[in-house]
Design a protein around this nucleic acid. Structure first.
Lengths: 337, 337
DNA sequence: TTGTAAGCGTTATCAA
DNA sequence: TTGATAACGCTTACAA
């Protein structure tokens, strides 16, 4: 148990240096020699020791993916895009979560990353999270997904445009009393949240519609939060006839609230979300679809370029397109309602 | 850039061996010395080199998690349970997928694991997958989640019982024509699939109900598959009044099929699923809830015990309880239907 | 194109 | 309790 490069070298009748070169596919190796080495390695069932290779070369062959959640649609979908790209490139994927409230006792990720990975991929962490700053300050090749912070390379959508499209769609249907289910009250910590809000405001103002403070309620990007937010909106003296939900999951919660009030999405209150969640088709939710899987893939590809280039190729940020998918949850304003 | 253990040793006025011992918290170190070493390390912002440590010690401090999918509810939920446990234990989590049809060009995971991880966690891979056999044959500490193969330690539910409970619930409501949306036609490759089927059959037979071949349709564990399966069931001369779906996601698809036929789950056709999917509450789906997150956590804990014990502690397989959650998708058989 | 040999930064054995 | 020092298995100048 423990075939080393020396065993292969001996079997092939060459030096360990040649084995190393041959097996890594380097250029300056005679093809016959390479074949002989490969045969010997296969014969002996040789597997390189990653630790030794990493120690000697200084490269780890792995990338860390840092995310606040794993079991939520957006995050797991990004992750699957990332994973397929990294695995194809032969890179190890180290998964770690951050900011997970139910695990305060954990070590923060930044110290865990040093000397351990060649690059870092960060999925949608609030821009003011101190742990995010620590990670960025590590100086490793890094790219962000779904957020942007300073000039760190990122892959995201145009969230202002998304907010504007969603709101405009409702306006086009004749709605005037339009509610907004946003994320958290007070200072907005996500680029996405801030930008979608801005898109909403722009569309409303262009249409000359008033921004009613009571019509904006936080939904915390969760289904439950969306449900509570919608319930609050329904409790108002003059209800909105349409609501822009900043995420599909919040819109699902809103649907539930509508139903428990005997109301029907689309007929009684129009609802539009953002994401293109798997379930949005099933639930007939109109939404702004974003290419979540692709965002993971593209961010990983960009990171690999950074990692594999010796000189510091500074990757640029990338903005991917979104599109409005109209379904049953939105309809023309109901005059009798 | 690159503080090593030697720098710390020098700063603390001790040998590298002592630094190593002190920093790892080993017993035979004077407390004063340890303090001095720790201070020096902190001062220099020293971070251990994992590669060097791994090479010298032979331990990798990491666990691989192998899964067929990442972006599906069951898998991402298990994964989050696994992740929180491993991260608390300071173990690196290497994520890799297998059997992913859109990536045939990838290396199979087994060779990638050798010399790279201390243990392996496998999530619900079909029992006859050759890559699964390769992984098990590696001889590393391994535990399986959601399946069982031979005597490899596993964490799962009693799928026979789950199938039986679901079916019995429908029978108790007076249903006699009960359909089954299963996974794949022909030979069943998942323990879960086979066992849930058996539970269904047992319950039917005990109630003296006939097993109508046409009432069993494959749904491939996907929403789309469930939708097609339900459509097929609805096309029959004598429709079933209730259907047991082997997963919630297939049940969601079935709901959709019902709706497009103008039928309502619960009122027209009763539907029961298995999982306790996040969306099942929202969609009023009666289901057999399984503790998916806990399964990940428990499997990871069991694996850590194996990994950390020098002698081969043979872990045992664990069966977790399920429970029936009754919601609107099931109701007494409708006599007028 | 190939070989020699000096690292890479730890851990672990053995003395002291 | 501590220190020397030999591994650990590979990569990479540098030489040949």
């Amino acid at each position: 148990m423990g075939i080393t490069i020396r065993d292969v070298a001996q079997a092939a009748g060459v030096s360990t240096a040649t084995v190393s070169r041959a097996l890594r596919g380097l250029a300056n190796v005679d093809e016959q020699t390479r074949t002989r080495v490969e045969r010997a390695a296969a014969e002996l069932d040789y597997v390189i020791s990653p630790s030794a290779s990493r120690l000697a070369s200084g490269r780890t062959g792995s990338v860390a993916v840092i995310t606040p959640y794993i079991a939520r649609w957006y995050f797991s979908t990004v992750l699957s895009g990332v994973e397929s790209t990294l695995q194809s490139a032969g890179m190890d994927l180290l998964l770690m979560t951050v900011s997970n409230p139910d695990a305060q006792y954990r070590l923060p990720p930044a110290p865990r990353l040093r000397r351990r990975v060649d690059g870092v991929l960060v999925i949608a962490i609030p821009t003011d999270d101190p742990q995010l700053a620590d990670v960025i300050n590590l100086g490793l090749p890094t790219s962000l997904i779904g957020v942007s912070v300073g000039d760190t390379p990122s892959v995201k959508i145009d969230d202002v445009h998304a907010g504007r499209m969603a709101t405009q769609h409702l306006i086009n249907l004749g709605h005037q009393r339009i509610g907004l289910i946003s994320a958290a009250p007070g200072r907005t910590r996500f680029t996405a949240e801030f930008d979608r809000h801005e898109g909403f405001v722009e569309a409303m103002q262009e249409a000359g519609l008033p921004l009613v403070p009571n019509y904006e309620v936080p939904g915390y990007f969760t289904t439950t939060g969306g449900e509570q937010a919608m319930t609050e909106l329904l409790a108002q003296r003059e209800r909105p006839t349409a609501v822009f939900c900043m995420s599909d999951e919040m819109a699902f919660g809103a649907m539930r609230a509508l139903r428990s009030h005997g109301l029907q999405p689309g007929r009684d209150v129009s609802l539009v979300g953002v994401d293109g969640h798997d379930m949005s088709e099933l639930l007939e939710l109109t939404t702004i679809e974003q290419p979540v899987h692709d965002m993971g893939r593209i961010a990983a590809e960009a990171l690999l370029v950074q990692v594999n280039s010796d000189d510091g190729v500074d990757a640029k940020s990338i903005v991917l397109p979104t599109r409005l998918v109209v379904r049953g949850s939105t309809a023309s304003v109901n005059p009798v309602y």
